[in-house]
Computed example of a mutant assay.
Amino acid sequence: MNNMKQLTRNAIPEREGWLRSKQTQKWIFLLFAITPAFGGYLLFTLYPNLMSAYYSLLNWNGISDPVFVGFQNYVTLFQDKYVWRALFHNLIYMFFVPAFVILISLLLAYILTNKNYKGTPFYKVIFFFPNVLSSVVVALLWAFIYDGSFGLLNSMLRLVGINIGEYYWLGEIKTALWAIIPPYVWAGVGFYVIIFMNAMVTIPKSLYESAILEGATPMTRLVKITIPLIMPIVRVGALFLVLGSLKGFEHVLILTNGGPAGSTDVIGLYMFNLAFGAEYHNYGYASAVGMFLFIVLVIAKLITDKYITSQTVEY
């Protein structure tokens, strides 16, 4: 009996010593720190994606019993001309939106950083203001701008002598697709101006001074010094913009809902209407379209990684 008590007393200090070790405390801390984020990822990202892959193999409207159809939804998808039309519109947005946002943001950030304007903090707030607004508010604002009867765009054109009457930019097939691009650009420029400015202020002034002594113009300094040194930041921004242009559909939903005659439809909106629209309730086929969009996003990411250099320039 005494021996058992002695063994118990010896085991308690050993256990306490194990808990007090730095290695054990480190793993306990990592467990409590990672579990909430990893659990959220499993619950709200990985699990829905896995279920979407499963639903894509079903013929299911969300109410009746699902019917397993295998890859029939994917066969239908590749024969669906509306999917390819929507993908074409996505590719247009993917090319023009990131290009305009990156170009305008770089120029504005470069000017504000190197000209040392007294009101630079105020300009930062002004440029960032669209990011404070929700996508719904931005879309409604631009819907007012494009309105044919009392829209701001037609009024400005009349002021400069161009009278096109009551032209509805979002109601015409020729202009609706291109009219969607400015809201995306306007909403995205301010954020990247702030990001690029914060990256530019880390560049030593001596590099610009040396370039000025050698006769480099402001544009040459931007292309030869500024952009190469912040290229990793530009690359990440371009990646986010490319993926966002492929996934996003909020502006299109509010401005045109894919019209007129499907001329502004995108994959995200087409998938949304398949699952929740008034005409269709086919969650299985919508999930197949979603998996197709996932593949497109992966391909876009790989292409961006290949053609936008990730090499860091040191000074």
Rank of each mutant, 00 (worst) to 15 (best):
W60E: 00
F129C: 13
N116A: 14
N114D: 10
M4C: 13
L91H: 07
L293G: 01
I230L: 14
Y168M: 14
S64T: 14
G190V: 14
V101S: 07
V296D: 02
V252G: 00
I92R: 09
T220G: 10
S56K: 00
T220N: 09
Y168P: 11
Y74V: 09
T312K: 08
M200V: 11
L207P: 10
K22M: 15
A179Y: 00
A238K: 02
S149I: 15
T309K: 03
T8C: 13
Y167I: 06
I303H: 05
S64K: 02
I299E: 12
I102A: 15
A216W: 01
L108T: 11
G259I: 01
M291G: 04
G161R: 10
L239T: 06
Y184G: 12
V69C: 09
S263D: 05
E214Y: 07
K205F: 07
L50H: 09
L50P: 01
Y47D: 05
L159A: 10
V185A: 07
K247L: 11
V97W: 09
S149Q: 10
I203S: 01
M219G: 09
T24C: 08
A53H: 04
Y55G: 00
Y307L: 11
L239H: 02
P260F: 06
V83I: 15
T202F: 12
M200G: 02
T202A: 12
F272C: 01
T113Q: 13
K118G: 15
L57W: 02
Q311E: 15
G148T: 02
Y167E: 10
L106T: 04
H251N: 03
M197Y: 07
Q25V: 13
L177D: 03
S210D: 12
K5G: 12
F294V: 02
L302Q: 08
L108V: 15
P121L: 07
Y54A: 14
W169F: 13
T217N: 12
V313D: 04
T45L: 14
V234Q: 02
